[in-house]
Amino acid sequence: MLTTGRIMQWVIAATLPGLLALTLFFGWGNLINVVWCTLVAMGTEALILALRKRPVTFFLSDGSAALTGVLLGLALPPLLPWWISLIAAASAILLAKQLYGGLGSNLFNPAMVGYALVLISFPEAMTTNWAQPLALLDEAPGLLDTLAIIASLAEPATIDGITGATPLDVYKHEIGSRLASTVTADPIFGDGIARGWEWVNLAFLAGGLFLIRLKIITWHIPASFLGALTLMTLLFGYDPDQSVPVQMHLFAGATMLCAFFIATDPVSAATSNKGKLWYGAGIGILLYIIRAWGSYPDAVAFAVLLMNFAVPFIDYYTRPRTYGHRKPERGLPS
């Protein structure tokens, strides 16, 4: 039987290919972040539950806090200092989840609240601190070196060229003044999309399709989200010499992670199938708007949070017709 705990376990299992790809292409950073964020998230959850005199082990064993930590660890820059991840994971559980009454009552996606909070508070660490693909480094930092960087014992700057902006960021800022072919000549773009990122996104895509196959998530949100993002890119960004091309929108950022693991959070997403289609499409459109015309290079957190606000409203107007009731001819569905 699919209990909450079992579902969360399957979702965490489905992120493993993506985590593996991240570790293979960008080093140990994400793995350490995942472990650290999970510990912080579960610790915060246990603390609040104890303060509220709720059964701690019962609520912890449903795995939802662990999943929040895992998603944050996957989404945050790999070499982020430990205390920024700590703030992100702790406020994700505290502000976005426990203050609203715990699992099932949270209006916002907890992981994305944590992410947006640290993105606004520490913009430089969150945008220029991305680990570069290992293939481009003379000497790949080992597990202990990475731990030292994350624990702020060693400066990442001392190892030259280890961090930088993401390909999405670089493309967006260079494309106005240079042609697409000269921009993508930079080795971080690999064969034209983004070195490493394309495999990470494919791995998340595979994990997501596995979840759809298991019927843990439905196809509605990923399909309408990816469809809306593609459509927006084809409408407004069809010229690769002027704006980020469609394959880079789909495979160079956090797109696939968002489509299958973040946007599909069953608590903060819309409920009915029709509502899910609107919700996914809204995220796709907002993601494109902020990526293309805003000042943030990737905007998964903002797009998801903005649509989270709209969810109660969407649910209100997309209530499925109950059996035996006809569609009202005019006015609100009652």
Binding site: L95, A96, L99, Y100, L107, F108, V113, A116, L117, I120, I289, I290, W293, G294, S295, Y296, A299, A301, F302, A303, L305, L306, N308, F309
Partner: peptide, 19 residues
């Protein structure tokens, strides 16, 4: 909780900065 929710809404609206 209304104030906290409004604060989180404000946080997300900061994503439109620079639009």
């Amino acid at each position: 909780i209304g104030m906290i929710t409004a604060g989180l809404m404000s946080l997300a609206f900061m994503g439109f900065t620079g639009l």
